[in-house]
Simulated scan of single mutants.
Amino acid sequence: MAKIKTSLPESSVIGVKNLKDGEDISHFFKRFYESELSRDFGVYRLSLDALRADIQQYVIEHGLSSLFYNYLTCDAIMHPGFRTDEIEAIVLGIMSKLDGVKHLLIIDGYFYDDQPDCLLLLEKIVRSMSSKLEKVTLITHGKRVSMRPAMHNVFSTVVPGILINDVVTDDFHDRYWIDVESTKGVMVGTSLNGIGKKIAMIDYASSADSREIVRLASGLL
C-alpha cells in the first residue's frame, strides 16, 4: 500500500504592494476572490494588534535592542499608548530574568516614591526576582528621603530580613538594576513612578556595561 505524505498548511505574513495607480488593497481582494486562487487559498487582513503578544514576548526574551541590530535606541517601548497591564508584563518579564540574584544593585537618582501604584509595581518586581535575594544596595541622589520607609517596607515584606544599603551620590546618572555577582543587568529609562506615564525604554544592559558599573560602584557596596 502506498503511503501518502501530508503536511499541515503553513501560515505566513505576506505583504501586498500596489503597483498600479488608482488601485488599493480593496481591488486586490476583489480580484483575488474573482480568481481561481480563492478556491485553494484563503487571504485575510491581520491587524497588527494580533502580533502584540508575540512582539512583547520577543522583547522580554531578547531585549529591545535585539530588534535594532544590537544597538540601543531611544525608541519607546513603554509609553502611555500601551495599556498598563501590557507595560507591567514587559517590565516584569525582563526584570524576572534577574531572579536568582543575591545582591541587587539599583542605581536610580529618583528611585524613592510612596505612591500606591509605584509601591505595588515595586512589590511585583521584587517578587519576580526574590528566590535568593539577600541584600539590595540603593544608589540615589538622596532626594525624597521621607519616602524611603515605604519602599524599604516593600523589600522587607517580600524578603524578610533583607539587608538594605542606602548610598547617596551624584556620580551616577542612568538607571540600572544589576546582579552584583553575575553582573547581569537591566537598564531602565525612567524611575518606577514614570513607567506608563513617560516615553522610556527598558532593556538588558550589556555585560561589559554592567561589569564596569559594578566596578565603579564597588567601594559603595
Rank of each mutant, 00 (worst) to 15 (best):
V188M: 10
S130A: 05
S7K: 13
P160R: 07
L121N: 03
T137H: 01
E23W: 13
D209T: 15
K197C: 08
Q115W: 11
G42P: 10
D75I: 15
L105M: 08
S12Y: 13
V167E: 04
S218R: 10
Y112I: 06
E61Q: 15
M147F: 00
I77M: 14
C118G: 09
L138F: 08
K17G: 13
D108T: 02
V159D: 00
V154K: 01
G196A: 05
S156H: 01
R175Q: 00
V126C: 01
R148C: 05
I77C: 15
G185I: 06
I125G: 05
D99S: 00
V13T: 14
G100R: 06
L72P: 14
P9V: 03
R45E: 11
G109W: 00
I77N: 15
K17M: 12
T137N: 03
L120P: 03
T84Q: 15
T73S: 14
V188R: 01
A2G: 01
I107Q: 01
D40C: 09
G196M: 01
I60H: 06
S206R: 10
E34M: 13
V154I: 02
H62W: 11
V13S: 13
I107A: 09
G189W: 03
I77Q: 11
G100H: 00
I60E: 08
H103N: 04
Y33A: 01
D49N: 11
R52W: 10
N153I: 09
S191Q: 02
D85S: 08
G81P: 02
I195R: 03
L119K: 02
L138G: 04
K184C: 07
S207R: 13
C118M: 07
T73W: 00
M78N: 15
K97H: 11
V180I: 05
I106E: 03
V136A: 04
V16H: 07
E34Y: 12
I202A: 05
Y69G: 13
S35K: 08
V16Q: 04
A50H: 12
D117T: 06
L133Q: 02
G189F: 08
S182D: 03
S182G: 02
K20E: 12
S146C: 11
G142E: 05
S96P: 01
K132R: 05
R39Q: 14
F28E: 01
L105S: 05
S11A: 12
A2K: 11
A76N: 07
S66H: 12
T183R: 11
M95Y: 01
G15Y: 07
Y44N: 09
D108R: 04
L72K: 12
T169S: 10
I55H: 11
M201G: 14
Q115K: 14
L8G: 11
Y204G: 07
K197I: 08
D99M: 04
A217K: 00
